[in-house]
Design a protein around this nucleic acid. Structure first.
Lengths: 321, 321
DNA sequence: TTGTAAGCGTTATCAA
DNA sequence: TTGATAACGCTTACAA
């Protein structure tokens, strides 16, 4: 492993000259610079990150923290983030699990994007207090070193419920996410605001956990109590798909007997029969925006919290009553 | 940001005593050690990774390189790897894209697990020559610093073809993966070995790219030329699902007219109607083994290349002729 | 049991 | 234009 000392020896110059040449400083002659660069290449010189990080107090690496690695959902999101950070010469690494949390305070990364329930808000605030820069995508947290980039959950849930009311539905099931989920809580809150304005609406809440299986479970419950057409708002698509999988094995027809709408507009919804109505937003844009906000924070700029806007995607799964 | 110097000053001891205490060395008195630890906690001391990495010449971080972040396929794989490295006190970070390749030679990570076509084999060999430790999961590469953990593609493809021959099929379509894919090449090679032993078999090859859409395209081609029942071996499940999506829109019945078998046994195959026959293997185990091999390599142990064994999963999509 | 000091590979200040 | 040198924060051999 060649270092600048080796290069300096070979070139017959001092290490500082080598450093300048390597970093393209105009202070060194083109001639010597060329000679040094040639030797560097010849020795397969690669700068040592630890040494540089120690000196410069930055790593040019951004960490993304996810609850787990599963879920095709993350693909576009991470793609968006990668674009954002790469453009500014940063690298992106994806982390998961408690153990990896230390990467931030140990200064292995220059900042973090958090979409990970295993971080407590207290922990995040502690890091922020220590001067670390953060973007959160899954909670409401206010601190000068933390920026929020959140989905407009309330708008989405409102769109969904108003859509089914417009279609004439008067009986509504809502399948919730896990209690700890910020997105679930926000969506549910918006649902309740809408139904408060519609006293004629019959409203039944079923507890879910954002996973397929809980959607299927909710489907069983709904099928058992089936007496008349009803609308179901699954607070994410995953659960809606789980419900599909179950209902398909019954006599109940989706979009005629039971009407379903989801949230997230994940890729498989394109393949569902009938097409699942959902709430759409650009996952890539969400990721891109989060990364941009973090870079601004790191650069020391003031940044306002941001929202990602959502739209209604109609589908045959949610028909008129 | 407190450092050991600050602690030393507070405690009225030297920095080496602090370092020893922090690292639990028995050389320092329990009393002073306790005092130092207390002060460290009070000052919210967190060791600086760059400094430690520089000194110890290791980061205790393993990098996984993936072609892209999409594909729910990776979930279990990464979960397995994480388990493996965490157990030994390492952290796992997931990287993608050319830019992140530098993390290895810059010594930001202690080793890499590669499942990423954007790495050329020459590049990997260069790193191996420089002393970096690697595990490859997507190619055949021999070097003392590189270990292979590969799927037993040949066994899988052989199982698949023999299964359909046993069921009486005499007309076989094979939808291949992209030309550059090692897995595709190996699977195809095994297919050809089997059909060489079965001269009565009618064999048609269709080029695919491992994506859903190419499976659908192959489905169109097969449907157009449909005259008699035939078997199709899609070299991965993704393409098989794409073919399903198309064939469902036609009169052709899967498992009766066109018989399909895939490879990978991805999660959605459980939900397909009729169930897709496939070749199964534990993704988690694959990841776990890869990480274990890498850690052995880093520890300086000799390691043999490893294989992940596969099994046939029967399904109604592949019936008797 | 504790302290001194060298060294890890860079960058950057100051002097030459 | 180039060189000597301190500094980044930590570990560890050696001295006290």
């Amino acid at each position: 492993m060649a270092n600048i000392k080796d290069i300096a020896k070979q070139a017959g110059v001092s290490i500082s000259t080598v450093s300048y040449a390597l970093n393209g400083s105009p202070k060194v002659t083109d001639e010597t610079s060329a000679r040094i660069l040639a030797i560097a290449k010849e020795l397969h010189y690669i700068p040592n990150a630890a040494a540089r990080n120690l000196k410069k107090q930055e790593t040019k690496i951004i960490g993304v923290f996810l609850t787990d690695f599963s879920g095709s959902f993350y693909g576009h999101l991470l793609q968006g983030m990668k674009e954002g950070v790469n453009q500014s010469g940063y690298d992106l690494v994806v982390c998961s699990g408690k153990q990896s949390h230390q990467l931030l305070p140990q200064r292995m990364i220059d900042g973090a994007i958090v979409l990970d329930e295993t971080f407590s808000s207290e922990e995040l605030l502690r890091y922020a207090d220590l001067g670390h820069k953060l973007v959160v995508m899954d909670r409401d947290l206010n601190h000068p070193n933390i920026n929020q980039v959140l989905l407009d959950n309330k708008a989405g849930a409102t769109l969904a419920v108003e859509h089914l009311i417009e279609l004439g539905h008067r009986k509504l099931y809502v399948v919730t996410g896990p209690k700890g989920s910020f997105d679930s809580r926000q969506r549910l809150q918006a649902v309740k605001q809408v139904i408060d304005r519609h006293p004629d609406l019959q409203y039944i809440e079923i507890e879910g956990d954002f996973n397929k299986s809980s959607g299927a479970l909710a489907g069983i419950q709904i099928a058992q109590g089936y007496s008349e057409p009803a609308a179901v708002f699954c607070l994410n698509d995953e659960m809606a798909i789980g419900m599909y999988d179950y209902l398909i094995t019954t006599d109940i027809r989706i979009g005629e007997d039971i009407h379903i709408i989801g949230f997230d507009n994940i890729e498989v919804t394109q393949y569902t029969q009938p097409r699942l109505a959902s709430i759409d937003y650009s996952k890539q844009k969400w990721g891109l925006l989060a990364s941009e906000q973090l870079l601004k924070l790191i650069a020391g700029n003031d940044v306002e919290h941001e929202h990602i806007y959502v739209t209604l995607v109609k589908g045959k799964s949610m028909g008129a009553v």
